[in-house]
C-alpha cells in the first residue's frame, strides 16, 4: 500500500536536497556572473571560462590531473583485475580475510591514507634518494584505486559459470588463451566500471594528492591554492567544470551498472522459468 506523502515529509525532502545542492547551484550560477560580486547578479558572461583557459597555472594543473588520473586508472585496473582473479581462485578463508583487508582503504579516511603515504614516501625517499613529485603522486593514486577495481571486478567473477575456464581449456586454449579469450571478455563490464570509477576518484581526489604530490599541483590543489588569495570567479568556473565532469562519469557508471543488473536479472528469471 502506498501512502500519500504528507506536506511535512515533502518539505523535509526539499530542505534536504536544498541544503545539499544549493551551494553547488549558486556556484554554477555565479560562474556566469559578469562581475566579481558573489552576491549580486550583474549579467551573463563566459569570461571566467575564457580566462580559465588562458591561465597557465590552471592548465598545467589540469594536465597533471588528467595524466595522473589516466595513468593511475589504467595501471590500477590492470593490477586490480589480476588481483581479483587471484583472490577469486584462493581458498575461501584466506580470500575472505584479504577481501576485508582490501576494504580497509575504502572506508579509511583519506587524510590517514594521505599522511601515511606521505610518511612512507619521505622515509623511503631518504633511503633511495627521491623527492615527492609526480612519481609519488601516481603511486598514491594507483594505491587508493586498486581496492575499488577489485570491488567492481569481483562480482563479475562470481557470476561466471564455474566451468567456464575449463570449457575454454577443453576447446584447446592454453591457460593464457583461456584467460585472455574467455575470462577477460566475460568480466569486461566489471573491468570497465572499475576503470571509470578509478578515473573518477583520481580526478576528484584532493587530500591524498595534497600529501603526496610535493611540488606538483593537481587541479583540486590549484583550486585550494586559489582560495587562499583573493577569491576569483575563475574558481567558480573551474569547480563547475570539475563538478559536471564527475557528475557525468558517475551517471555513466550508474547507468552501466543498472543495465548490467537488469540483464543478469533477466537471465536469472529465464533460468528459473525453464
Amino acid at each position: 500500500m502506498k501512502k500519500k506523502s504528507t506536506f511535512s515529509q515533502r518539505l523535509l525532502i526539499f530542505l534536504l536536497f536544498f541544503f545539499l545542492y544549493a551551494p553547488i547551484i549558486v556556484l554554477i550560477i555565479f560562474s556566469f556572473n559578469s562581475t566579481k560580486s558573489r552576491s549580486v547578479w550583474t549579467g551573463f558572461t563566459f569570461d571566467w571560462y575564457v580566462k580559465l583557459f588562458n591561465n597557465s597555472a590552471i592548465l598545467s594543473a589540469l594536465y597533471t590531473t588528467l595524466l595522473v588520473s589516466v595513468l593511475a586508472a589504467v595501471i590500477a585496473t590492470i593490477a586490480g583485475t589480476f588481483a581479483a582473479v587471484g583472490l577469486f581462485n584462493m581458498k575461501k578463508r584466506p580470500r575472505d580475510i584479504l577481501l576485508q583487508i582490501n576494504n580497509i582503504p575504502v572506508i579509511n579516511a583519506d587524510i590517514i591514507t594521505g599522511v601515511s603515504l606521505c610518511v612512507l614516501f619521505v622515509f623511503l625517499g631518504k633511503i633511495f634518494n627521491f623527492k615527492l613529485g609526480f612519481g609519488t603522486l601516481l603511486i598514491a593514486h594507483i594505491t587508493f584505486n586498486i581496492p575499488y577495481v577489485i570491488l567492481s571486478v569481483m562480482p563479475k567473477l562470481r557470476q561466471l559459470d564455474k566451468n567456464l575456464f575449463e570449457a575454454a581449456q577443453d576447446l584447446g586454449c592454453t591457460w593464457m588463451q583461456a584467460f585472455t579469450k574467455v575470462i577477460i571478455p566475460e568480466i569486461r563490464p566489471g573491468i570497465v566500471n572499475g576503470l571509470l570509477m578509478a578515473f573518477t576518484l583520481s580526478v576528484d581526489d584532493f587530500v591524498i594528492s595534497y600529501f603526496t604530490a610535493g611540488s606538483v599541483e593537481t587541479l583540486s590543489m590549484r583550486i585550494y591554492a586559489m582560495t587562499k588569495k583573493r577569491i576569483s570567479p575563475e574558481i567558480n568556473a573551474i569547480s563547475t567544470i570539475l563538478f559536471v565532469t564527475i557528475l557525468l562519469l558517475l551517471i555513466i557508471i550508474n547507468v552501466r551498472q543498472a543495465q548490467q543488473e537488469k540483464a543478469s536479472a533477466r537471465k536469472r528469471a529465464e533460468f528459473e522459468n525453464r
Partner: peptide, 18 residues
Amino acid sequence: PHKRPVNTVFQRYALFTH
C-alpha cells in the same frame, strides 16, 4: 586438457555469453 582428443559438455553448459 587442451592437448587431449576429448571434448566436454559441462553441467551448466559453460557457454561463452559474450
